[in-house]
Design a binder for these strands. Structure first.
Length: 272
DNA sequence: ATATGAGCCTGTATGC
DNA sequence: TGCATACAGGCTCATA
């Protein structure tokens, strides 16, 4: 399930294939994604050069010539793959970005939680992006900021760091891992965490995301890299998906709970 | 303002 | 074996 490292892995995989090329055709087989893909979009985008592939949070942004941007979200089961034109279409291959060298960037998303939008001009003001929090790997994301945001809040810290208005890109897997590394109980009220512990938490969020990007992301079920290979971070996960198994630090059985409708695993001894 | 819950989807795993 | 149900979860919207 794509979180920031998976989306960044996708961005890095796509860019060398498509930047500087032209998008000769955009083929939408299934417009019913999270939101209906606009009928006008293929005609609007076709024939334009691709200037860059960027990312904001979990959104990929294809900057096209003529000040048009394509905003693509992978949802939770989506992935992009670079294929040849002869590659047979598989179930859930919803959109093809056909390039002028014959290659295709193919979007597959079984659960259709993904989305595709065209944005004319700057993307920052678009409703989907305007109220997003800072990038977790940027200098703007600090312990001081998170501490300030958490002031007075009774919500569990895990819910707060997964809130994209607070910080983008931290989903269930990496929130779970970062809290374990930081020694913070996921259900602890955000307003009851000391500043120094927030510094630690922010450092661990940055570290776990950076490590996951280096490993090509985490492949559990649907995600794959643009070349079809899996990401290798799954084997590095210390707690996610390991409920009942022993903590690698202290040996106690890891505990599984639900927090805000999300599966959550933590060590009852190491995390307070 | 914050917090909680529903809903969007379908492949996979589990229970009877 | 086969069916029904639960679960996975990023994000927005509605409601308290």
């Amino acid at each position: 399930m794509p979180e920031l490292p998976e989306v960044e892995t996708t961005r890095r995989g796509l860019a060398p294939h498509c930047v500087g090329r032209a998008l000769v055709r955009l083929k939408v087989r299934e417009p019913r994604l999270r939101w209906l893909v606009a009928e006008s979009l293929p005609a609007q985008a076709a024939g334009r050069g691709i200037a860059s592939v960027g990312r904001r949070g979990k959104y990929l942004i294809f900057a096209l010539e003529g000040d048009l941007n394509l905003l693509l979200h992978l949802g939770m089961s989506g992935h992009m793959r670079v294929v040849s034109a002869r590659q047979p279409v598989k179930p859930h291959d919803h959109v093809d970005f056909c390039l002028d060298d014959g290659a295709i960037l193919r979007f597959n998303d079984p659960r259709r939680f993904g989305s595709l939008h065209a944005i004319e001009g700057p993307t920052d003001a678009h409703p989907l992006l305007a109220s997003l929090g800072p990038e977790p790997l940027s200098a703007a994301f600090t312990g001081a900021l998170l501490h300030r945001v958490g002031q007075g809040r009774r919500a569990p810290i895990k819910s707060v760091i997964m809130d994209s208005h607070v910080v983008v890109g931290v989903g269930n897997i990496y929130a779970t891992e970062a809290l374990y590394r930081a020694g913070i109980h996921p259900a602890r009220a955000a307003g009851r965490i000391a500043r120094a512990r927030y510094d630690r938490l922010v450092n661990e969020i940055k570290a776990v995301l950076a490590e996951a990007i280096e490993a090509g992301g985490t492949t559990l079920r649907d995600f794959s890299r643009t070349d079809g290979l899996p990401g290798y971070f799954a084997q590095t996960l210390a707690v996610y998906g390991r409920g009942g198994e022993p903590c690698r630090a202290c040996g106690r059985a890891l505990r599984s709970i639900r927090l805000g409708q999300r599966a959550t695993v933590y060590c009852p001894r190491c995390q307070r």
